[in-house]
Amino acid sequence: MEWTIGWWQVSVQRVYPTNEQLSQTYSKAAFWWHQHLRLLGYRHAYRQLWRSLKTTNALPDWEGNLAICDCGIGTAAFSLAFAQAITPQARIAGVDLSAKMLNTAHQKLTQANIHHQIFHSDVKRLPFADRSFDGVISAHMLEHLADPEQGLREIVRVLRPGAPLVLVVTQTGLLGWLIQCGWGNRCFSREQLSALMHEIGLINLQFVTFPFSIARFTSMACVAYRRL
């Protein structure tokens, strides 16, 4: 945005946190984050979301020894909900910029007896070979990227043909704006996210409504597939 005031031109441009800033911000929150998600109802909402995806046949016939990547795993709330609702035999590869978040994720997944590995890495440069995973899951990560298309293209790279991406992002609205003020993320409308998914070539996009909870008013979820 630009304004001209007399002989002066004033411009305002949105900036996003650097990787280092994101790591520092979420490392400070790592100690209380998992409990915070429980108190706000997100952990329950995540479980209900996975059950809804399963019962509506929005997912493949997932079972057994799946290879799943959780991008922006945080304290593993989304992965734990996946394991509880879909299959506890999955092998989770968790990626995050915050080492302290990864330590908590490791503790939570170990306590739940879920086979996993954690990777201190940037989603824009995932440390995996092409077509490594039966699915990628991600909750509240994409909105922190200055270039979300770049992040999604890297996610698609590691998906096997025909495999799904299950994505949760902060949605536009008053609550989304309040979250944005506190954490420096962007918010997506359904139209913006649909256009982005279409641009990178994901297909069979479906949006899924959260159960009645705060998550319904702050977040939106979708599933889309890599082409065969």
Rank of each mutant, 00 (worst) to 15 (best):
Q13I: 15
Q150I: 06
V208E: 10
A163Y: 02
N185S: 14
L174M: 11
R43Q: 06
L205H: 05
M220K: 02
M141E: 10
A67F: 04
I179F: 11
Q9C: 11
A129H: 14
S79R: 04
L126A: 09
Y42E: 02
A99L: 07
I73K: 01
S194G: 13
L37G: 02
Q48R: 03
L202Q: 11
Q180Y: 01
K100D: 14
L159G: 06
L175N: 07
I214V: 11
P164Y: 03
C181S: 10
G74H: 03
G6V: 06
K28A: 05
I73M: 01
A105H: 07
V208N: 04
W3K: 12
T25V: 10
Q13M: 15
A224C: 11
H198N: 14
C222H: 03
L174Q: 06
G176I: 08
E63N: 01
R51P: 00
L97A: 06
A93Q: 14
I5K: 05
N103D: 08
N65Y: 08
L152M: 09
H34S: 08
T209D: 14
A30G: 01
G135T: 03
I73G: 03
S11D: 12
Q21G: 09
F212D: 14
K28Y: 07
M197S: 15
I114C: 01
M220I: 15
L53I: 04
T4L: 13
K28G: 06
I114H: 02
G94K: 00
L39G: 11
R91W: 12
V169D: 01
Y225S: 08
Q171E: 10
L40A: 11
L102K: 08
T55E: 03
T87C: 03
P164G: 09
Q35N: 15
G72C: 07
R160I: 05
S132V: 05
L40Y: 10
V223D: 06
W62F: 08
A85R: 00
L165G: 04
T172M: 12
N57P: 00
V123Y: 05
D70P: 10
I92Q: 01
V10L: 13
W7L: 13
I5L: 15
G201T: 03
P127W: 00
T25D: 14
A58L: 08
Y26Q: 11
